[in-house]
C-alpha cells in the first residue's frame, strides 16, 4: 500500500495542477514515486500532462455523480492501483463541487489550494475543505503585494489555526520546496483500513439527482430544501 495519501482539493482554476506539476518532479528527484489521480466531472487533459512529466497518472470522471461522493466510492480501488504500480505517494487532485463537504479522510493528508487573488471573502465560504485541512497552499502570490499576502494569511490562520500554510507561485515554482519537504517529513500511514470521512457529506437524493429535468413543485421528490424568505405569510 502507498505510504501516504495526499489530497489536493480546491475550486476550479486556483492552481492545483500548476502546483502539482512542480511538486511531483521535486519529490521524484528526492527518490520518491508519486502518482496522481485527477478527479473531474466532464473532461480532463491533466493526466496526459503528468504522464509527459514521467509521472503515473489516472483520471476519474464522475460524470453524473457528485465528484466528492465519486472520489470516496473509489478510494479502495485507488489505493490498490497505487499499490500495483508501486507508487508510495498517492496524490488525489479534486475540484470540490459545492464546497459543502470535503472528501478528506482521517488517514489522508488533506490540503486545500486557494487562489490569493480571489475575493477576500472566499475563504470564509469554503467550509470543511478549508476548515479541516492539514495544510493550505496559497497560489498566485506573485500577483499580490506583500501586505495583502499577510492579510490573507492572517485570515486563513483565524479560520484554520492548525493548518500549515505554504505560499506558492506555481508558474515560477517559488515555494514548492518547503511544501515537498514538509509532506515528506510527515509519518507514513501504516494502514488505510477502517478509514473514515472527516466530515459527513450533504444529504442528497432528490428527483434531480436521478435525472429529472422538469422544473416545478410537482416534480420534486426526495430530500428537498427550500429558501426561507422571512416575509412568508
Amino acid at each position: 500500500m502507498p505510504e501516504k495519501m495526499i489530497l489536493f482539493s480546491g475550486s476550479s482554476s486556483v492552481g492545483k495542477t500548476a502546483v502539482l506539476r512542480r511538486l511531483l518532479p521535486y519529490l521524484k528527484e528526492h527518490g520518491h514515486t508519486p502518482m496522481v489521480c485527477k478527479i473531474d466531472c466532464l473532461c480532463s487533459e491533466d493526466a496526459a500532462l503528468y504522464c509527459s512529466l514521467g509521472i503515473h497518472a489516472v483520471s476519474g470522471l464522475s460524470q453524473d455523480i457528485c465528484p466528492d461522493h465519486f472520489l470516496v466510492s473509489n478510494l479502495p480501488e485507488l489505493l490498490a492501483h497505487a499499490n500495483r504500480h508501486a507508487c508510495g505517494l498517492l496524490f488525489i487532485e479534486t475540484a470540490g463541487l459545492c464546497h459543502r463537504c470535503s472528501p478528506a479522510t482521517e488517514h489522508s493528508i488533506s490540503g486545500c489550494v486557494l487562489d490569493c487573488t480571489a475575493s477576500f471573502h472566499t475563504p470564509a465560504r469554503l467550509g470543511p475543505m478549508l476548515t479541516q485541512a492539514d495544510f493550505l497552499v496559497l497560489t498566485k502570490i506573485d500577483m499580490i503585494s506583500q501586505a495583502e499576502l499577510e492579510l490573507v494569511r492572517g485570515q486563513l490562520n483565524r479560520i484554520n489555526p492548525g493548518a500549515v500554510l505554504f505560499p506558492i507561485d506555481g508558474l515560477a515554482g517559488y515555494g514548492i520546496e518547503p511544501l515537498g519537504d514538509w509532506l515528506l517529513s510527515l509519518p507514513d500511514c501504516k494502514s488505510f483500513e477502517n478509514d473514515r470521512l472527516r466530515h459527513s457529506m450533504p444529504a442528497g437524493v432528490c428527483s434531480y439527482c436521478v435525472g429529472e429535468t422538469r422544473v416545478g413543485g410537482l416534480f420534486q421528490q426526495g430530500v428537498v430544501g427550500k429558501i426561507e424568505f422571512g416575509d412568508d405569510l
Binding site: 506573485d142 500577483m143 503585494s145
Partner: peptide
Amino acid sequence: VAHLSQNMRFVLDV
C-alpha cells in the same frame, strides 16, 4: 524582510 514587488495594483476587495 519587506518586499516591494513589481505589482502596480492591489487585488483584494476591501
